[in-house]
Structure formats: C-alpha cells, structure tokens
Amino acid sequence: MIRVVVLAPIDNSLYARLVCFRLRQESGVQLAGILVRSPWNLNRIRSEFTRDGTRLLRKVMDKWVRGDQRFSDQAGDNLMRLAERWELPFKTLKQLAAEYNIPRLVVSDHNHRRSEEFLNRIAPDLAVFTGGGLIRPNILSIPSLGILNCHTGILPQYRGMDVVEWTAAEGRMGDVGFGATLHLMDKGVDTGPILKNVGLEPGNWKSFSQIRAALEVSMVEMMLDGVRGFRDKTITPRPQNPNDGRQYYVMHPRVRAAAELQLLRQLKNG
C-alpha cells in the first residue's frame, strides 16, 4: 500500500478533484490526506499580481467565479467532459474528503508550518501536486518518494510559464511539440527528475486554450500512471541536465500574438 497526499491550489480545483476521485478507487493506494491552499492570502495575491499583472484577474475570474463553467464553451476534450465521463459527484474537495473521511487541511500556503505538521503526521510515501505555487525544501523533503508534478510542456526543453505558447512562438511545434511531462519536484522550476513525457498527437488545434484543455486531460491520466508506477516500482526518475532546457517567463501579449500567428500558420500548412 502506498500512502499519497494531494496538494491542491483551491478547493474547487477540477484537476485535483479528478485525481483524488480516481486515486480513491485505485487498489494498493491510500489517499491519506488533502492539503488545500486558501485563496485568501494577501502576500501571495500581491506577489502573484506583481508576477502576472492583470492576468491574475483572468485567473480569478476563471477559477473562482466561472469554475467548471469555463470549460463549457471549449471544443474538444477537457476536464469537464472527463468529469462527466467519470461521473464525478463532488463539486469541492471538502465534499470529497467528507464523503471518504480523508483528512483535509486548508492552509494559507503549501509551505506553511501547519502544512509541514499535517504532512509529518500523515507521513506520506508520495505527494501529488495539482497546483499552488512553488514548494519549499521543508515540504519537498517530507514524502519519502517525492512530490509528483505534471508540467504542461515538454521537459527539459520548456521549463516555466506559458510553455505551450512559447513552443509555438519558437516554431518548435514540429520537433519538440506540445505535450506534458510528469516529473518529481525539486527546489528549481521544473528542473526535477523526469518520469514521463507525453506528446499531444498533432491535431487540428485552433487555439492555445484548446491545446491546454487537451493537455489537462492527459495530465490527470499521467498523474495516476505516476502513482501506479511508484506503487508497482515500475517507474524510474531520470535526472535533468540543467543545460538541456531553458526557463520561460510570462509571455507579453505582443509575443503571444506572434505565437498565435505561428499556430495558425502551422494549422494552414497541416
């Protein structure tokens, strides 16, 4: 039996709910705890606003105000459709935790001392990170096998922010391609040992949001595969060479516009 804790960015995170729901059904896996980040932390809001600017407002609108409805106007597969297929009955992690009697803690920050105490008490073998900022060494060191993260880009080439868009902007859709990478977290940004890369099949992608939506669906499966791999001891972390990739940052709208053009060009050329 492998003991797993899920770290979630917000209580209504659909990604986290799907991962928790499925982990609960896996044999040989015990969902031992859920750690949820509270949205109400002024310091974090300030620092995210400094980093993301007004994009933060879009994130707030999407995640808090629109919730699952943000998927409703997306073509193709997405997390909401996956939730429908899986008949996910829970609207929040709070409901899920109450139904299955799983310890759940809401903290202002995943790195908080209370998170440390919670995790030490549970002593998980593995943690699954579904979002919520950088994780500091005090938390990284607790799960004996590490913390799993799924990144929405191909590692080691594309680390950091907006990497779907950066892949297009740099014209790497053909050789690197869009995809997601399952890796263990370390103190760097997306620099931890790689467990698995999954590339998206070249498709008729019309927008970055459509690509992201498709990637999010893969990421749920990848997370579950990662946990199974650790449970069955069939997965081997492969360290990254820092020089094999670059770190990318929040994309300016002008570069984004150029990336969109590249995507359209690719679509036109097949």
């Binding site: 007004t54 994009r55 407002l57 879009r58 609108m61 105000v65 629109r66 300016h252 002008r254």
Partner: peptide
C-alpha cells in the same frame, strides 16, 4: 458571465501595441 468578465479584463488588461 463570460462576456462581462472579458469586458472587465479588456478594460484593465492594458499593454502597448506596436501602433
């Protein structure tokens, strides 16, 4: 809701265009 949020975001999400 989506149109309203896009309106709000368009109002605050300013950057310099080439022109």
């Amino acid at each position: 809701m989506k149109n309203f949020s896009n309106f709000l975001l368009g109002f605050v999400d300013r950057h310099l265009t080439p022109s």
